[in-house]
Amino acid sequence: MTSAARRLAGPAAAAAVAAAVVGYVGAVDPNQAGHYPTCPFLFLTGFYCPGCGSLRAIHAMAHLDLLTAVDRNPVTVAAVPLLLWTWLRWTRRAARGRARTWAAPPWAVWSLLGVILGFWVLRNVPGLEWLAP
């Protein structure tokens, strides 16, 4: 194995795992009860967590049904381009054999925290059912 191939093993493995997960969730429908366990947080508290609906969103995205995906969990859909972008940068760094020199601006990470916390609260508020899964 050349050194470039060895460096690219990480991104390749991540892509393979992601493809396997999307393939599985796309094939085994989370809309049917009993296919997947319930979200532990929902199970224990009765409130939605920020990740509730993500399996159904992934299933919808695997079937290219973006509208349904946004209906189930808009933040999951929004996370996909972010994760793809991160993966692309990681792959490019790995291919060139460079270390990471860029750190996201702190306000962006704090905003992400705010978005997720706000989403968590708001999707449990009556009247904002479009945010609930």
């Binding site: 979200c39 532990p40 947080f41 967590c49 920020p50 990740g51 993500s54 999951t76 997720i116 968590w120």
Partner: peptide, 9 residues
């Protein structure tokens, strides 16, 4: 991944 794409906050 753990907060938004899965289930535990």
């Amino acid at each position: 991944l753990s907060t938004v794409l899965c289930c535990l906050p």
